[in-house]
Design a binder for these strands. Sequence first.
DNA 1: AATAAACTTTACGTTTACGTAAGAATTAAA
DNA 2: TTTAATTCTTACGTAAACGTAAAGTTTATT
Lengths: 149, 149
Amino acid sequence: MTKKTYSISELSHEFELTTRSIRFYEDQGLLRPEHRGTTRIYGNQDRVRLKLILRGKRLGLSLAEIRELFALWDQTPSGSEKQLLLMLATIASRRAHLEQQIKDIAMVQQELDIAEQRCTEALAKLRQEMSEGRVPTPAKGSATNRKVS
Amino acid sequence: MTKKTYSISELSHEFELTTRSIRFYEDQGLLRPEHRGTTRIYGNQDRVRLKLILRGKRLGLSLAEIRELFALWDQTPSGSEKQLLLMLATIASRRAHLEQQIKDIAMVQQELDIAEQRCTEALAKLRQEMSEGRVPTPAKGSATNRKVS
DNA sequence: AATAAACTTTACGTTTACGTAAGAATTAAA
DNA sequence: TTTAATTCTTACGTAAACGTAAAGTTTATT
């Protein structure tokens, strides 16, 4: 069984963010810890939420967008037909967004591949020249490295 | 052959952002259009850059981070061995970041799957009840939909 | 009992990424 | 040539997401 409750500093250490941020998320309606007396007590529910918040942020979502996702998630599907259809549309839209991100990532990865290759080759060349006792030759004008007229 | 030059408004229409943003990116050193007389002239190079900027933003990168990626990309690998190794490390780090994002996306997609399923089921149930002339039953307390004490 | 450690609220400050005029200059059209 | 459209610079404004004190409680420790 996982731990039942957490203090704010425990969470801040575990997830490496400030207590300020955690309280701010509560301000924004993303967390609802129990307020026992003067201090906050976070349950597993809250911990999971926090994890989801951070995941959302890594994907570039704003806190407002994350809040919407939570609302989406929280709604036990008990609404009207119109509500449910709207929700399905929202989900589809989110999905499209994620798919765009996947494409973007793939492209950036390609670029990194190329950059890494160029870099590795240059390194190899450099080392070979060194071993031959030559003076390293500066590479000449690549397409993106021209003098700014 | 693609068009050779673009005005700022052409680009702003094509990519659906304001001219303000485009000039701002220049301010931040992300674009370097030609300044002919009083107006800016953007080449294909600039267009590609702009596309990369937007891709980076979709992945949640800040303009500063995008600028670093450009610097990374622009450096013809002609540096010292130390420089090159540092660059490879940076590339590796970027790669790790992207892989984390892929994982994040996969998890969110799973959640969307579940949400969509719940939603679709609820919709089906609703319609069946309607066809039977019954009054729709409100769903009872899910784990995330409890009354806030 | 006094001090430290962790927690609280309140509130002003800061960075990023633009928005939004305002006013001047240039170019195109009527 | 007057008008209209596009572009420019300058500059103040703003929303988001916290940072950073300040000053006061509560709990734990010596």
